[in-house]
């Protein structure tokens, strides 16, 4: 149920442009070995720059760091870097990203933002919020997810420019869980709808040559007995995130070791610190005054926002160092 977004005077903020610049300073390293494009499997390569995109599952992963830490530890020495662009309530139409504009403008900004980060891999986790539209919304969701994939991948690169195409990984949403306040009856009904959306995501992955991580089908099986998957029927618990991390790891053929959560506590804290700093970089508070229609008042302070770049960079270095040490 999207509300009407208020139009914003002044057009696009320079944030995306600044962020792009910042990326050049972040020590992404290596360009990775070329892989045949279009093959629907999930594989991470040395030096991959991964963007995580989605709704609150991805947004809260930025505080939990489970999936990211799992992928880092299962790829020793691969120097993987992650940037989390999750946004609560978001959909394949970028309904949470319009800010003062219509969602379509937020969508355009999102595509610019992702392309500016020059990822080699984009992990796309949508579908749960959309699934409330049930069968009536399924076709539109599927079409838009396909469009999102193509927009994220961008125009086909010129042959021979040396840059491999962006690889996409589509993630199915974890199931709703019959736990308070969500009743068993409600959870069953939700999962019936969600099952269709998960199937649509798998189908789009085949169409678009994307890899798949199937949380809908697999995350409950990875959950230790007696643990709840979610905190409230919908948002993953700590154990739920660890289970999701396990599914991601298996999906790229590198299962987690049993003592993952304990062994990686320090690394995970460093991942979360880096993610918090990056959050303040790409979604700073007071955007209205720094970049938008009241920038005539405080736009001078927008200079502070790129000052997060070296901090993100330093935190990233810590993550990489700890990742090396955990080998």
């Amino acid at each position: 149920m999207p509300s009407p977004a208020r139009p914003r005077p002044g057009g696009l903020p320079p944030l995306a442009a600044q962020l792009f610049l910042a990326v050049a300073m972040v020590p992404w390293s290596g360009s990775g070995a070329a892989e045949p494009a279009g093959q629907p499997r999930f594989e991470l390569q040395t030096g991959d720059r991964v963007v995580l995109l989605g709704d609150a599952i991805i947004e809260r992963e930025g505080e939990r760091g489970a999936i990211e830490t799992g992928l880092v530890t299962t790829h020793p020495g691969a120097h993987l870097t992650f940037r989390n662009l999750g946004w609560s309530g978001d959909t394949v139409w970028a309904e949470s990203r319009g800010v003062f504009d219509a969602p379509s403008a937020g969508y355009a900004r999102l595509i610019d933002l992702v392309r500016g980060l020059e990822p080699t891999v984009v992990i796309v986790a949508y579908g749960r919020n959309e699934s409330f539209a049930s069968a009536a919304g399924l076709a539109a969701f599927r079409a838009q997810l396909g469009r999102l994939c193509r927009d994220l991948r961008g125009p086909t690169r010129e042959a021979g420019d040396g840059a491999p195409p962006t690889r996409l990984v589509l993630v199915t949403p974890p199931p709703f869980e019959a736990t308070p306040p969500l009743s068993a009856v409600a959870a069953t009904a939700r999962n019936a709808a969600l099952s269709d959306y998960a199937a649509a995501i798998r189908a789009v992955a085949i169409d678009e040559g994307a890899g798949v991580v199937d949380l809908f089908g697999g995350v409950t099986d990875s959950l230790p007995a007696g643990e709840r998957l979610t905190e409230n029927g919908v948002h993953l618990s700590a154990a739920g995130y660890d289970a999701a991390a396990a599914v991601f790891a298996v999906a790229c053929g590198r299962p987690l070791s049993g003592d993952f959560a304990v062994r990686t506590a320090t690394l995970r804290a460093a991942v979360n610190t880096k993610n918090r700093l990056f959050f303040h970089r790409w979604r700073p508070a007071n955007e209205t005054y720094l970049f938008l229609f009241r920038r005539h008042e405080q736009g001078n302070n927008a200079v502070e926002i790129p000052q997060f770049d070296p901090l993100v960079e330093a935190a990233e270095a810590t993550v990489q160092k700890l990742a090396q040490e955990s080998l």
Binding site: M1, P2, G89, E95, G98, N129, V234, T288
Partner: peptide, 18 residues
């Protein structure tokens, strides 16, 4: 007024723009 919120609950997404 300037806040745009998109809040997920198990019952759907609640939005308030403004």
């Amino acid at each position: 007024i300037y806040i745009h919120s998109h809040v997920e609950t198990p019952f759907g997404v609640h939005r308030l723009n403004g």
